[in-house]
Design a protein around this nucleic acid. Structure first.
Lengths: 348, 348
DNA sequence: AACTGATATGTATGCGCTTACATCAAGCAA
DNA sequence: TTGCTTGATGTAAGCGCATACATATCAGTT
């Protein structure tokens, strides 16, 4: 050990040179023993590994990154960790990437477009070599910043036909079309909608469009007083259902909710209002959360495999990193899970 | 630009030297303009910043880390992101740390002690300068590895009196003592317990001890057939309550659950069994999840401020990083939220 | 005018590692 | 034997930056 710098314990941090000395080889061989084992004679490699273990040495990532121009870092931009949907995407992404030695940096935008840009900048400054970004409605500069750096990226959670970006996700519009079809087939003609904030959120916007489109095909539309937009909480679901049911004019026979929390709120409030579900009112959710099949009645909802999104996004980015030009991923399926919170529209 | 290395777009990545040339200063001044603005004349600084913006330059983290011996990286080890409790801790930790320029690396152990050690090793190899670790029951070597590197750390989520580690969290044993007291005061004498896996989980173990201890003070104990350990899911809660109620011998009048999911399951099953809550059976949860106040009846549970844990852990680590020897954090409060899933024990 | 001290900037070294290239040894064909 | 090839190892040059130290500048003193 040749330097004076000590770590917090008064020990000297070993370097490749120390390992090399102990093993009786050069630093080049030490490096190769770790990064290109096939180029090193087995017995030499063993000596190096043993010396490293003895000194507790690991390659210093900064030195390695500098010399090799590889950071083995990837970033993921999500709205928040406080939502299972994104948490499981991140979890799966990380599991897959770390299997290939890539470490994941997480950036949360808190649903704020400016924070999103900042987070991406920060991750880029950290040297991430690939990025997964939830959604595609971001500040204009965001994707330019990324491509200007030549960093491969993938948009997750949504898979809009015609998007200029590589995406891993499902077609949000199609998912809501599916829900609408389900209810139309049950004879519903009067719909209400309770959904999460749509600003800067292309997933939500796409869903609304899918819904409007499908209703329009039947000459139907949502009455403004039957649409509520707000935080995706049980409480907002309850409050919204009450307001919708108290509004003047004809009552809806089906309430479509942007996620299961809102739907559970609606379900609870329906009970409080003495409305029988599904006899008098049908309610749908989205996500198929664990709670959805435990409600009374169990909730009809759409199931999306978020872990699969994370995994496929990771696969795509890994392929990019290994120099391939992978094909654009195919859209994932979202699946209607019909339970008993939906039923035939009540006879007039 | 002097080198031949190109990024993925065919552009050359600018370096401090390029910025220096454009601004007509030395690289030292460029560095100072970013890292020690007060040492640079305002108009020169402005020129440098402008040149950097023009070239899209940001300090390369590897070079910076190598030269300054600072990585500005911290790690957090949690069991899983799939649990709100940990997700919000991480979220708050990250928010606080990133405000001070520290990036967070996340390691998930998936409740597996070996993975925990590996994740910590990986993060250490990445150069993290501080670590937050959920819980203290880990493989023997884990904390030694950390201290051998001289890396400051903090244990989160639990705050056991007498722990050798600095902890940010609440006293799990005390929290369950509180629950037990609450039920004892209501006159309950026959208890059941449904809890999550206790292996490698000091938080759960501490809670069980707190409970056993408090019951023992009254000469009471849990009958083995009234204790169920398994996954913390609604389904397991349901199934467990059924088994407990079907067991031979006297029935419990109160069921204590390890978290709200289990309690909600128990609540649902109680209804299915035709048991009136709280008249015939009291049920308690833990965590005070959003759903807890929406159940029928609303769930009596313990509230813990997980975001506060994350924030305080971050504060502690930040203090360590700035060279202080901060005092050991005080335990946080967990608070009983009495709702109507608990009531007086039924008369015999 | 000469000197002092404070402040701003430049010079040059090295952080720990990877890797192109040089070197060397050994095996084999001629 | 010689020359050539192949594979294993060493040599040494950076990677991009921060920073100790040297130098320059200038205001204020005497």
């Amino acid at each position: 050990m040749s330097r004076g710098v000590k770590d917090g314990n008064g020990h000297l941090a070993p370097r490749a040179l120390d390992v090399a000395a102990l093993a009786g080889v050069s630093t080049a061989t030490v490096s190769r023993a770790f990064n290109a084992p096939e180029k090193v004679a087995p017995e030499i490699r063993k000596k190096v590994l043993q010396a490293a273990a003895e000194l507790g040495w690991m390659p210093h990532p900064a030195g390695a990154a500098l010399a090799s121009r590889r950071t083995w870092l990837a970033g993921v931009l999500i709205p928040t960790l406080d939502n299972d949907v994104f948490a499981s995407q991140v979890g799966a992404l990380q599991t897959r990437l770390s299997a290939d030695g890539v470490t994941v940096l997480i950036g949360c935008s808190n649903y704020d477009a400016d924070q999103a840009v900042n987070q991406v900048r920060t991750m880029l400054a950290r040297g991430v070599e690939a990025l997964a970004i939830v959604g595609e409605s971001h500040r204009p500069g965001l994707f330019e910043t990324i491509t200007a750096r030549g960093v491969p990226y993938v948009v997750t959670y949504s898979h809009r036909p015609g998007s200029p970006h590589p995406c891993v996700g499902f077609d949000n519009a199609a998912a809501f079309r599916r829900i609408a079809r389900h209810l139309l087939e049950l004879g519903h003609r009067d719909f209400a909608l309770i959904h999460q904030p749509s600003i800067d959120n292309d997933r939500v916007v796409a869903r609304l469009e899918g819904l409007r489109e499908t209703l329009a095909e039947e000459g139907l539309a949502l009455r403004p007083q039957h649409v509520r937009e707000g935080p995706s909480s049980i409480v907002f679901g309850r409050q919204s259902l009450r307001e919708i049911m108290e509004a003047s004019g004809p009552r809806p026979t089906a309430v479509i909710c942007g996620n299961d929390a809102l739907a559970i709120g609606a379900l609870i409030e329906a009970r409080a209002l003495g409305l029988r579900v599904p006899d008098e009112l049908s309610i749908t959710g989205f996500d198929d959360a664990a709670m959805a099949e435990q409600t009374d009645p169990p909730l009809t909802t759409m199931r999306v495999d978020n872990a699969e999104i994370g995994k496929q996004a990771a696969d795509y980015l890994l392929a990019c990193l290994s120099g391939k030009k992978p094909a654009r991923p195919a859209p994932l399926e979202s699946r209607l899970i019909p339970r008993t919170s939906t039923g035939p529209a009540p006879r007039l």
